[in-house]
Amino acid sequence: MAEPGTSTDIFDAAHQINTETLQTLQLRHNITDDTAGWDARLTSDLKHILFDYLYPWVWPFATKAGNHIDPLHRALIKNRIVIAAEDPKLHLIWHEDTIYIKPLPDYLLNFSIWQNYLRGRADMDMTFYQAAAGFLRSYSFLIQRESDFVIAHKSNLLPKYVSFLHFQRFIQRFRTLPDDAVSPRYHYGQLRLNRLNWLTHASKLATFVPRISTQPSPPIAPHHDHPPWIHPWYYHESRWEFRQHIANWVAPLAFIFASLSLILSAMQVGLASLDPGEAHVFVRTSKGFAIATIVAAAAPLVLAVVAVLVVLVAQFGFAVRAEVRRRRDNRVVGGRATGAA
């Protein structure tokens, strides 16, 4: 008997839109090994390993509501550009004037995939089912009107052969799914990238402190077909050049220094108006504040120089490691070719 929220009649053959055979789907998605290949594909398309790790600490920074998702026409009203992003962790993440949405994989519209790889096997990991159900539930909120459907087609989010009527008939069952039927990522709707980046920074730093570096419950278990998971510094890096990072800090630093300059100027006027023997406290305070301002002004410059040196050393180290790997691989390939000869 299925548990509440995990009903297996959510999708049946009568509502499928993609009617291709499994062999055709495997060929188009470059899958050679039947079960392991589909497991790897579902993992790369649907799993949210980093978000699952961050999940216990997201609630103070975001609205915990699975339906907190703007329909696509609403995104355009907010002057946001819809970007198709294949990485599942970017689905429904917005940053400034951009919102990232993962295109709907066509195999999720196929009944055989659900029957054989999402719910039909005795050894099936139910997180695949919950991730697929949550992903489609998010699409039920993204596309509510025909104008949303048109935007989805223009943004390459849906297969071209899908009609609005067929899509509405297919997706309506997912709109009423409860949270316990979907993966933790879809307990939230759209999320702000900046907040996730800061949370990822904090979580990464916490891994260096033994008392708080334990993983949240339930523990993260990356799929065996993927390399060991390493906690990143960013949820998603949106700036790829060092000058972009510097430019990001120019405005707040300029505001701080302008404020400090105004305060120092006011102190200078106050000191000039004092008699030589009075207000010693004000004099000492002004002197201390002036020294603190000099330190505050010099610190960012020193940190900027240090950061540039760290980046240069890191890039040089990466280049050295890549060259070592390349030469080692060439020796291995050459040795095999010689042995074969």
Rank of each mutant, 00 (worst) to 15 (best):
P4W: 14
T6D: 14
D9P: 00
I10M: 09
F11P: 07
D12F: 03
L22S: 09
Q23W: 09
Q23F: 14
L25N: 07
H29V: 00
T32L: 00
D33C: 03
G37F: 06
W38Q: 12
A40I: 02
L42N: 14
S44M: 08
L46N: 06
K47L: 08
K47R: 15
D52N: 15
Y55I: 00
P56Q: 13
P56W: 10
P56N: 11
P60N: 06
A62Q: 06
T63E: 08
A65C: 07
G66Y: 11
N67I: 02
H68C: 14
L72A: 07
K78I: 00
N79H: 09
V82Q: 10
I83V: 11
I83F: 11
A85N: 09
A85F: 07
D87E: 13
W94G: 03
T98L: 06
Y100S: 09
I101S: 12
I101W: 11
L108S: 05
N110R: 12
N116V: 02
Y117N: 05
R119N: 05
R121N: 04
T127H: 05
A132E: 12
A132Q: 11
A132H: 10
A133I: 14
L136N: 02
S140V: 01
I143V: 13
I143G: 07
Q144T: 11
R145M: 01
V150N: 04
I151R: 02
K154R: 10
N156A: 10
L157M: 13
L158G: 02
P159Y: 06
P159E: 15
K160N: 09
S163P: 02
L165F: 11
H166P: 01
R173F: 02
D179Q: 15
D180L: 13
A181Q: 05
A181G: 15
P184R: 04
Y186L: 08
H187L: 12
G189N: 09
Q190G: 03
Q190P: 01
Q190V: 05
N197T: 05
T200W: 01
A202S: 12
S203G: 06
R211K: 07
I212F: 10
S213D: 06
S217E: 12
I220S: 07
H224V: 05
P228F: 08
P228T: 10
R239W: 01
R239N: 02
F242Y: 03
R243S: 03
W249D: 07
F255I: 05
F255D: 04
I256Q: 11
I256H: 09
S259A: 15
I263C: 02
Q268E: 14
G270A: 04
L271M: 14
S273K: 15
D275V: 00
P276C: 08
E278M: 01
A279D: 07
H280L: 07
F282W: 04
R284D: 04
T285A: 08
K287R: 14
K287N: 11
F289Y: 11
I294G: 06
A296N: 04
L301S: 03
L303Q: 02
A307K: 08
L312P: 00
F316T: 15
G317R: 15
V320L: 10
A340D: 13
A341F: 01
